[in-house]
Design a protein around this nucleic acid. Structure first.
Length: 776
DNA sequence: ACATAATGGATTTTT
DNA sequence: TCCATTATGT
């Protein structure tokens, strides 16, 4: 981030008097505004820094750490500094190194929540039934385990998908619930929730593995059950710093509380208006109640924005003011330049892509670099239209995010080989590659092995070793297994005498994996390239173990500097970034705000969407251009779209409405804009913004024949009746997936008292009494 | 055991 | 629409 002039404090010693004691004002404090400086210098006691977008948050964070170190208040290893992303941790480390020099390397406890928790867990693993060599599973492994458990429990994996089980377990862990502490309001698959969760944990223990949620959850168990250990850490961490506090979940919150000593030198930095990870368990509440949690806490607001023009700031502030339950900040700037935020309506998604691509070219000709422009979308499916257009016009672009390197199948396969070579009992790795490439081992023979392994309580490899000495298998299968074992053993030998990347090359070659990819015309070459890149990146690590630990926690490759290209990414991915020129397409009801967010989380979901819009607008430094289309192809079907309610919420003084097609006639500013949808019938609600009314009309329009969906209407006080809440209305919501004994699976199209109109996948549309179906 | 047809599902994303 | 996973056939 570059919120303000970069600090020039390459030599701290210069600001020190004799004996290393700072004399006068140290250089690194100069150039901070009064609030920033207060946030840096208030080192003792709990501090909450509410740092609005573009107010110099990262600078404050790093300067604060440097200040604590430079003033001799603590040694590097006595600081605990946690972030959410590896990127943020990396950036913080770099900037502190810049401030205080190489002694920043002593910051052992600067990292993500998960990496710090992993460090702690490795030291005390045995207290939660793990060996310190435990492996960290990724989501794919988790779902695999879940699938096996669901199958073992004879549950229909169509109705109760591995994904949803893994998801709910993760959710429980985020809330800090172990199986024993799971509240009985929580469940999965009709009363089997707790049992499945406990079985999942048992299985992980037998694999000597834990998932991401466990890193924190096991920490909670250790720290709350062993007072002496907790005390040791509390003494060690004399100062605690937390970045992006608005995104902490319950488990992380509890973890911090356990590590905070009575001196309470804890500084949390965040912005409640930028909390956009609620769907991942983040609790905005944590930041909202900071002052109650830490009595006597000092709250410092950073409100001076160094990033955006006053129009951009005005537009963003007006938008976010529609949210309730904010701590409230008023961003201001001395800037007085710049254009109003432009809002345009276009005919369809293709026209939108054309418009934006053209404007990118125009901006380019005016001297703005491609890399200074960004297209920020709500969801990745929106990216395609832009990519197609950019390719056609040869506009260089980079998609940020997307499928991640270490999650690609070929990379995971390579890792599975390495894991199995490293530890014989990694059953998940075994399963993954035992027949990849094809070795003539069928599903039945592999399942047989796994079943025997589970029954006798040994690793799959051991079971195979036993089986090939018996005559329980067909000769062909037996040979295939024997060869596989022989190969693994040979590679394990090889690993003793060679480097881990040579091992990887050898394994990929000798296993036939590269040959398999060469035979694949479609994707083979890309995959081989990825594997080459993998071998390359492995060389930066000391050994296999260190490498695997790194990838399981970091999950992404630190790619080199990007070329001069337009940055295309989701709004989530854009958090923390800034660009001179920002395009925000797809501001349409259902797309943004996303229909699903509203359906699933009601008013809360809507507010989070609005925060996302706020994040989007505040990414822009000089120019922000919002657009919406009247028609859009969604999953191959054409849908007519309504402008987002967020468009109407933009304050008129800071926006300039332009009409591409004349279709919207939005000449007099957005609020006065007459669009053809203003004439459409809307259903009564306590909320009267035109955008909202149009949204209602839109929602009802999407499902012809449906009655006004009672469950999605607003109460008189403007609160959404929570969908899915049994206490609210009939407890059914249009769109719910249901299961019926006779008709099978279907989707609720309308609710009429205790009767539901359900479109069954197989049996067609039927009217059924609601007690005969259950939610899936 | 493998190739092909049918089915169903589809945000946001970090660790 | 389009992708991935599953059912089906040889």
């Amino acid at each position: 981030m570059t919120e303000s002039a970069p600090p020039r404090i390459s030599d701290l010693a210069r600001s020190h008097g004799p004996g290393g004691v700072p004399a006068g004002t140290p250089d690194y404090l100069k150039g901070l505004n009064p609030e920033q400086r207060e946030a840096v210098e208030t080192t003792e006691g709990p501090v909450l820094v509410l740092a609005g977008a573009g107010t110099g948050k990262t600078r404050v964070l790093t300067t604060r750490l440097a200040h604590i170190l430079a003033s001799g208040r603590a040694k590097p290893w006595e600081l605990l500094a946690v972030t959410f992303t590896n990127k943020a941790a990396r950036e913080m480390r770099e900037r502190i190194t810049h401030l205080i020099g190489p002694s920043a390397e002593g910051l052992r406890w600067l990292g993500t929540f998960h990496s710090v928790a992993a460090q702690i867990l490795r030291r005390h693993a045995e207290l939660v039934g793990l060996k310190s060599t435990f492996t960290i599973l990724d989501t794919d492994d988790q779902e695999r385990v879940c699938k096996q458990l669901l199958e073992a429990a004879n549950l229909d994996t169509k109705r109760w998908t591995p994904r949803s089980l893994s998801g709910i377990i993760d959710h429980w862990k985020n809330r800090g619930w172990t199986p024993e502490k799971l509240p009985n309001t929580e469940d999965f698959a009709n009363g089997k929730g707790q049992t499945l969760y406990a079985a999942y944990q048992a299985r992980l223990a037998s694999l000597n593995a834990c998932d991401f949620g466990d890193l924190l959850l096991h920490n909670l168990t250790i720290l709350s059950q062993h007072a002496d250990i907790a005390e040791e850490y509390r003494r060690r961490f004399r100062y605690i710093l937390v970045d992006e506090y608005q995104d902490t979940n319950v488990a992380q919150y509890l973890w911090l509380r356990l590590l905070t000593s009575s001196t309470g030198n804890v500084c949390c930095v965040g912005d409640d208006d930028q909390s956009i990870y609620g769907w991942r368990g983040a609790e905005v509440d944590n930041i909202l109640r900071f002052e109650r949690d830490f009595p006597g806490a000092k709250v410092i607001r950073l409100e001076r924005n160094y990033r955006s023009t006053h129009h951009i700031l005005g537009a963003a502030s007006g938008l976010i003011s529609a949210n309730r339950g904010r701590l409230g900040k008023t961003l201001w700037t001395e800037d007085n330049s710049g254009d109003k935020v432009r809002v345009r309506g276009v005919w369809d998604g293709e026209a939108e892509a054309r418009l934006i691509a053209d404007e990118i070219e125009t901006a380019r000709r005016q001297g703005i670099g491609y890399k200074d422009m960004a297209v920020l979308v709500r969801a990745s499916f929106q990216m395609r239209a832009f990519e197609e257009r950019f390719v056609m016009l040869a506009v260089p672009y980079t998609v940020i995010g997307g499928p991640r390197f270490f999650e690609r199948a070929e990379i995971r396969d390579a890792h599975a080989y390495l894991r199995l070579i490293l530890s014989e009992d990694d059953d998940l790795a075994f399963e993954r590659i035992v027949n990849v490439p094809k070795r003539g081992l069928g599903d039945t023979s592999v399942q047989k092995v796994l079943q025997i392994a589970r029954e006798t309580g040994v690793p799959a490899m051991t079971a195979v070793r036993d089986l090939i000495t018996s005559d329980e298998l067909q000769a062909r299968t037996r040979t295939a297994f024997a060869n596989f074992i022989r190969d693994i053993d040979r590679w394990r030998q090889f690993a003793q005498t060679s480097s881990h990347w040579e091992l990887t090359e050898t394994v990929l070659e000798e296993s036939g994996y590269t040959d398999m990819q060469k035979a694949d015309r479609a994707t083979g070459q890309t995959r081989l390239d990825n594997l080459k890149e993998l071998v390359q990146s492995m060389q930066a690590f000391d050994g296999l173990t260190a490498y695997l630990e790194h990838v399981s926690l970091v999950m992404d490759l630190d790619r080199g500097e990007s070329a001069d290209s337009v940055q295309v990414m989701t709004l989530h991915g854009a958090k923390g970034l800034e660009f001179p020129l920002v395009f925000l397409p797809g501001w349409e009801e259902g797309v943004f705000p996303s229909q699903r967010s509203i359906d699933e989380k009601g008013e809360k979901g809507l507010e989070e969407e609005r925060r996302l819009a706020y994040v989007g607008v505040t990414r822009g430094k000089e120019d922000v251009r919002i657009s919406f289309a009247a028609n859009r192809q969604v999953y191959g079907r054409w849908q007519s779209q309504l402008p987002s309610r967020f468009v109407d919420e933009l304050p008129i003084d800071h926006v300039e409405a332009q009409s591409d097609t004349g279709y919207y006639g939005a000449s007099g500013g957005m609020r006065e804009a007459k669009s053809r949808w203003d004439e459409m019938p809307s259903f009564g609600s306590g909320y009267s913004s035109p955008g909202w009314k149009r949204g209602q009309a839109f929602a009802a329009n999407r499902v012809p024949n449906a009655q006004p969906a009672r469950q999605t209407l607003l109460e008189g006080d403007g609160r959404l009746v929570a969908s899915g809440d049994p206490k609210a209305g009939s407890g059914w919501t249009k769109g719910d997936r249901v299961f019926h004994q006779k008709f099978g699976y279907g989707q609720v199209r309308a609710i009429e008292g205790n009767k539901l109109v359900v479109a069954f996948d197989k049996a067609g549309e039927k009217k059924v009494i609601d007690t005969f179906v259950e939610k899936t």
